[in-house]
């Protein structure tokens, strides 16, 4: 569908260049993180990578635990690819791209155990905190996955619990307590994209249109891998996978530095 664009991008990559002048493994700079930007949310952050901008807001709700984990709260991640952020996004319920985005961000936080679900328990078997993380895109210039995952982590770090009124069995959102949500791990997502046999990071929307394959690697601070997601139509060799994991570990440090 984008044959000409594909050949153009590949030709540049073969010469070690990108359309915006970056090197293959360069993130756009600066990576800008602003925390606690939404007063109506219990936690929030805005991340800008180049012209890509996402806002993440966290709301806390009280609900009943799952029967198999009566003493654990949970997280719920939602993503809205707002039509305001890209001419190709449409109104309506989340499409498959939004669902994948939300699930990958969810997996990073869940599997790294960044949040101890047991600490979200209010009353075993009956009441637990639900941490609802909503991702909203403001401007999509590619790499929403890495930006959203970073914004979600930055937002979680600012969460303060609202007061829970035991008698009324309701959350009093007007009163924030000083109790902060403990974020025990730092899962950072790095997506490496393969186009014409070359590996690049932080793709723009144009590069995403012509990608052959991509692999998102979520790592913790010590380099432990906690989630993976392969996308794109083309396969990856196991050598490429190992190469991507190395790139992700390296780039993960860079993004951690921005946080």
């Amino acid at each position: 569908m984008y044959n000409n664009l594909y050949y153009h991008v590949v030709k540049l990559l073969n010469a070690g260049k990108r359309m915006d002048g970056r090197g293959l493994l360069d993130y756009r700079k600066p990576i800008d993180i602003e925390q606690d930007i939404i007063k109506t949310a219990e936690g929030s952050a805005r991340v800008k990578i180049g012209k890509t901008e996402v806002i993440v807001g966290v709301k806390l709700e009280v609900g009943t635990p799952y029967p198999d984990t009566p003493d654990e709260g949970t997280i719920i991640v939602g993503a809205e690819l707002l039509p305001l952020s890209n001419p190709e996004f449409e109104l309506g319920p989340p499409g498959i791209q939004a669902v994948e985005l939300a699930r990958v961000v969810d997996r990073g936080i869940r599997e790294s155990k960044a949040i101890d679900f047991k600490k979200l328990c209010i009353e075993e078997g009956n009441k637990v905190w639900l941490v609802v993380i909503d991702i909203c895109t403001i401007n999509d210039d590619g790499n929403l996955l890495d930006a959203s995952s970073l914004a979600a982590l930055a937002a979680l770090k600012t969460v303060k619990f609202p007061k829970y009124d035991e008698k009324a069995e309701k959350v009093n959102y007007k009163e924030k307590t000083s109790k902060k949500l403990e974020v025990e791990k730092e899962p950072i997502a790095i997506t490496v994209t393969k186009i014409g046999g070359k590996l690049i990071v932080d793709p723009t929307t144009e590069e995403e249109k012509v990608l052959d394959a991509r692999l998102t690697v979520i790592t913790e601070k010590d380099g432990t891998l906690c989630a993976l997601q392969k996308g794109g139509d083309a396969p990856l060799t196991s050598d490429e996978v190992m190469q991507i994991v190395d790139i992700a570990a390296e780039k993960g440090k860079e993004l951690r530095g921005a946080l």
């Binding site: 939404i38 949310a41 709301k59 939602g78 909503d134 007007k174």
Partner: peptide, 16 residues
């Protein structure tokens, strides 16, 4: 199209 982000309300989360 007017839309409130899920975390933009003063009280509970707004359903998207």
């Amino acid at each position: 199209n007017y839309n409130m982000m899920p975390f933009s309300g003063t009280g509970e989360r707004v359903r998207p």
